[in-house]
Amino acid sequence: MAILEVSGVNKRFGGLKALTDVNLSVKESSVHAIIGPNGAGKSTLLNCLIGKLEPDSGVVNFNGTSLLGGITPHEINQLGVCRVFQTPEVFGDMSLLENVMIPSFAKHDGNFRFNGWGSIAKRGEVSEEALSMLEEVGLADQRNVITDSLSRGDKRRLELAMCLIQHPKLLLLDEPTAGMSRADTNNTIDLLKKIGERGITKIIIEHDMHVVFSLAERISVLAQGTVIVEGEPEAIKGDPRVIEAYLGGELG
C-alpha cells in the first residue's frame, strides 16, 4: 500500500519550472531514494511535502490526508512526517539533550500546551526517552554539550535522533551523509538499516551511490524537474537515460 502519493505536481519560480508533472508513489515501510543531478528539483520536491512550499498544482496525499491547501508544517509533522535537512536544522545554542527533548515534548504534548508551571525535571519519561535516543545514535556522551560545537556529521545524526524520537511514519532524509567521512557514512547506513526494522517509511535524497544502493528498495531519478525513470536499483544502474541525465545530453 502506498503511504505517500504524489501526482501531477508542478512548481514554478518565476520563469523557472522547478517541478513538472512529478509523480511519486512510496510504499509503506519501504526505502525510496530520489537521485538526480544538482538543480533537478529534489529538495524542492521535499519542500512541497513538508509544507515549506505550496505546489502550483497537483496532489500530495499522505496516509489519505492531503498535505496541500493551507496545512501548516507543524500539522504535517504531527501527522507523522519528519525531515532531516541538507544543512542541519538544530537548536544551536541548546544542549544535545534539550535538542532531542523538544521533539519528544511535541510528541507527548501535541503542537501546543501551556504548561509554564510544570517542571521539566518532573517529566522523567521525556528525558529518559531523549537519553536513550542519544545513546542509540551514539551521542549520549555529549548530551550536555552545546550543539553549535558539533561537527556537521554529528549535527546530522542529532537531527536524525530528533526525528526518530517522534516515531514518524515517514522520514525524509535530505543528503543524510553529505560531508561525512567514509567511516561515519557507514555508521549512518547501519543506523538507517537498524531503524528500517521499525517499519518507518523513508525517502532519501543522496548523491553518494554507495549509500543509495545499500539502502534503497526503489529509486526515482529526477532531472530538470521531472521523473525520468523509476524502478528497482538494479534496473536503474544500467538505464541509459540515467547515465545521460548525469553526464549531460549533448555528450550522448
Binding site: P73, H74, P103, K107, G110, M162, Q166
Partner: peptide, 10 residues
C-alpha cells in the same frame, strides 16, 4: 523553523 518542522505551533 525547526520548531515548526518538529510539530510545534509557535
Amino acid at each position: 523553523n525547526r520548531m515548526s518542522y518538529t510539530g510545534i505551533n509557535t
